[in-house]
Amino acid sequence: MRGGGSSELLLDPQAELRKRKLLEAAAHSKRSNRRPQRTCRQRAWFYATSFFTMCAVSAGSSLLFLVPLYVDPAISTLVADFAPKPVTCTTTRREEHTGLFNCTWSSCREGCTSDMFRCTHIYVNYTVPPAPENSTALREDDRTSEAVLLVNIKGCGYPPDVRCSNFTDSYGEPGSQFPCFYSRQNRTVAMVRYDRNRQVEVIINFFAIPFVITVVTSVVLCVMHCDCRRSPPPVLRRTRIHDHR
């Protein structure tokens, strides 16, 4: 009978075996597709690598912005060797210029990358005090007739630290007297504010610390992921060549 034949097919041992094999293969495939569980050591290694990589990239990238904006002016200020004690400066004249060739420098400019088509030149007079061994009179080279007044060694900056409108109003009026610092390397340059310790602090905070962090984290990552052990030289095997006649 047809009914009996169909029931025999359903109870066929070979069909049941094939069905069981298919189910086992599907279960095995499902287990193989699962993400392998990480051990505590592997997790700690992963998070440590991520942390040191982030520190190295962040510190290295910060150097690209901090060096031209802060470190380079601080180094230039120290190289100019400004006098540690202020002298009295008197504004002699103030000039407003326009044009690229007339604005090679500016007493104050907001934005070091801004255009140089408009600029303000402020000139001052100051007198260098005599040396202790010659306090009775000034030598001829101790007197400076005129110098340019700069808001800082670069003559530029960004608000709120540098506001050129306030700087020009305070020191640009002819006849104004105020304390200033002159450069002992270039007597024709004077600044209103100077603090040597502040410049050294800027170099340490904005260059030395990020540079050390970049180097240290790079070395740590190299040690973690590079096998620096000396490997033995490869052994060369000699092969015999037989002549076939």
Rank of each mutant, 00 (worst) to 15 (best):
R2D: 14
R2C: 11
G3F: 10
G5M: 11
A15N: 11
K19C: 08
K19M: 09
R20H: 14
K21I: 10
L22H: 06
L22E: 13
A25V: 02
S29I: 10
N33G: 14
R34K: 12
R35W: 08
S50F: 14
S61A: 15
F65T: 14
A74G: 00
T77V: 06
V79A: 03
D81V: 01
K85M: 08
C89I: 05
T90Q: 03
R94Y: 07
E95V: 14
G99Y: 02
G99Q: 07
L100N: 08
N102D: 10
C103N: 01
W105L: 08
S107N: 03
E110L: 06
T113V: 08
S114L: 11
S114Q: 13
D115T: 13
M116G: 06
T120C: 10
I122E: 06
Y126S: 02
V128M: 04
P130A: 02
P130K: 02
E133Q: 02
T136N: 08
R139P: 04
D142N: 05
T144H: 12
L150V: 04
V151P: 00
C156D: 01
P159Q: 10
P159A: 15
C164V: 00
D169P: 08
E173L: 15
C180E: 00
F181P: 00
R184S: 02
Q185K: 12
N186W: 00
A190P: 01
M191Q: 15
M191L: 15
V192I: 02
R193E: 10
Q199A: 03
V200Y: 13
F207G: 03
A208F: 10
P210L: 03
P210I: 03
V212Q: 00
I213L: 00
L221H: 11
L221R: 06
C222Y: 12
V223W: 09
V223A: 07
V223P: 02
D227Q: 05
P234D: 08
R240E: 13
H242M: 06
H244W: 12
